[in-house]
Amino acid sequence: MSVVLTERARILRVHRRISNEPENPSKIMGFLFPITKGMTVLDALLWVKEHKAQGLAFRYSCRMGICGSCGILINGEPELACETQITALSGDAIEVAPLPNFPVVRDLVTEFQGFFSHHTWVMPYLIRRNPVETGERELLQTEEEKLRYYQFTMCIMCGLCNAACPIVGVDQEYLGPQALTQAYRLAVDSRDEGWSRRKASLDTVHGCWGCTVAGSCSAACPKGVDPALAIQLLKRKVLLRFARER
């Protein structure tokens, strides 16, 4: 059956997979969908799920680029489906696939357990030598102190940076750009006193020294965070601490 494409219709080519098992390789299925004004890739996926393939699995929540749930590979680039306009993509067909460097649960849904465990590994919370005082008084800081880490608080944990990172793809132990960025965010926070506890996990070949500065994490981030910069600053911080401590 031939498909007639008009200006108001395009094909969504979806990589579908039942599970991550090798005996279940992914297959690509094409779906013709109508374009509406302001339509995003997430809208197209929802249209396909409603009209063509009810079993299609993908993750989403806020639909406005805040929750970070709908990260997928769109035409080979890691993007948020809710922030990618259909009209901004060239070609008759739009190819969507699950994020690379993450195990596939089903279709476009990927497993984030390893991602979250790496995030947890860097202790992504304020650490004080005297934890009781945090409940008793405010920890004040100047505007300048806040700006040292502010951009890195914009992370929504969508995982696009880890999907784009070539090192995450080959080294399962590598903490990854997201976790390392959060480690740096806390390392330069004037209120935090947990550097000595975090340093051991960061100062390893699977920590900040695993980064080869490909820079793809920064290019992929939908929130304008620069993880590659954070990791290089983290390296400098580790080395400067090294000089001070020895």
Binding site: D203, T204, V205, G207, W209, V238, L239, F242
Partner: peptide
């Protein structure tokens, strides 16, 4: 040895 030592 910390990795930073080797890197330095």
């Amino acid at each position: 040895l910390g990795e930073s030592t080797l890197q330095l």
